[in-house]
Design a protein around this nucleic acid. Structure first.
Lengths: 203, 203
DNA sequence: GTCTATAACTCGATAGAC
DNA sequence: GTCTATCGAGTTATAGAC
């Protein structure tokens, strides 16, 4: 196991900042809190990252770029629609299960600054969602799946993947669940979501 | 139309506070901002609600109790499962479309204080979700629907309803949508979600 | 009840020694 | 690079006149 001692100061700061920002959000996070968890002095935060906003920006970019590119790649791949759905849902749940609080964190910040986000994520290239839209339309035409609005289908898939994490505390509390049981539910969903969707659209 | 003049000071404060808290969250909200939007002095906020936290608590309870009881009633009603799904999805989307930012607001605060929330919402009575679980199990036994985990089915229904609002800015930006187009999508989903679910579970 | 003025405090940021 | 000490802006909260 890697101890704190082995990390550079910069790494210690980033580790602490990631935790605090994800837990508290930009407004709720305290530089003192980050410094304490990193085991260093508050002044060091400014020495390395100049100010709170810059530090947050680094964390957000790091987190978002860990989350999106993989999914975009699947959406743009040349798999059949059914296999795409299977792989996307499976991989997404696997990725996020390691950091269940990431989705809410990202959604919050995107809601506060919508324009900035999308620009940074996709640049000027055609959003990969459109590729998927085209594929869905094609498979409808070929008679592989029932007619359905591509946009709704995509929203449905994302909803089924992401929402359980966003509502994790509600699910756990109302169903009297512990952490392990929640992991189990997600584990089941890795295959169930795809089945659920495909069952609804297959001919 | 009702003018500000006709409202009591307390109502003016609550209206302003609701907007600001929902938009900025507890940490991001400023008492000065609330006072300005209410058209009164900052000191009045404390006169009526003692402090920021107390004011927030009032708003949160008010918002949550506007959102949940109706849904709970549908879940506990004696409709058939298919009709329940149809009515729940339709009514939920209708209710939330008036305040698209409510879900994220509620989810955020629940994530920060999970225990408090569920206690306040359901008290000691059996969570209405369990009633729905029983009904789903019964309809599976009767052969009306395919075997499916009741819990997953409920999570799926909630996901499909709520997530589009939570990810509103992402959807709008990536699909190049304006406010009206988004409303249209939600309008379509009022019937599409139920169809999508039923198509997947019907025999 | 409502206002002005200000106290009390939190927190991000900086200065400066080592 | 790292620390201690402190500043100063911004915010919540209160005192006190009307």
């Amino acid at each position: 196991m890697v101890k704190k001692k082995d990390l550079t100061t910069e790494e210690k700061i980033l580790d602490a900042a990631r935790k605090v920002f994800i837990e508290k959000g930009l407004d709720g996070a305290r530089m003192q809190d980050i410094a304490d968890r990193a085991g260093i002095n508050k002044a060091m935060l400014h020495y390395y990252f100049r100010n709170k906003e810059k530090l947050f920006e680094v964390i957000f970019q790091e987190v978002a770029s860990r989350l999106f590119p993989k999914m975009v790649a699947i959406m743009s791949s040349d798999l059949s629609l059914f296999d795409k759905i299977r792989q996307f849902t499976h991989d997404y749940l696997e990725t996020v299960m390691e950091n269940p609080y990431l989705p809410l964190f990202v959604l919050n910040e995107v809601n506060k600054q919508p324009e900035v986000f999308v620009k940074n994520m996709f640049g000027n290239q055609m959003p990969p969602v459109l590729i998927l839209v085209n594929q869905i339309e094609a498979e409808i035409k070929e008679g592989i799946i029932k007619p359905i609005s591509p946009l709704h289908l995509i929203i449905n898939m994302l909803s089924l993947c992401i929402f359980p994490f966003v509502s994790k505390p509600i699910i756990m509390q109302t169903m009297n669940m512990d952490e392990l049981q929640f992991r189990n539910i997600i584990e089941q969903r890795k295959t169930q979501i795809a089945e659920f969707i495909i069952e609804s659209i297959k001919k």
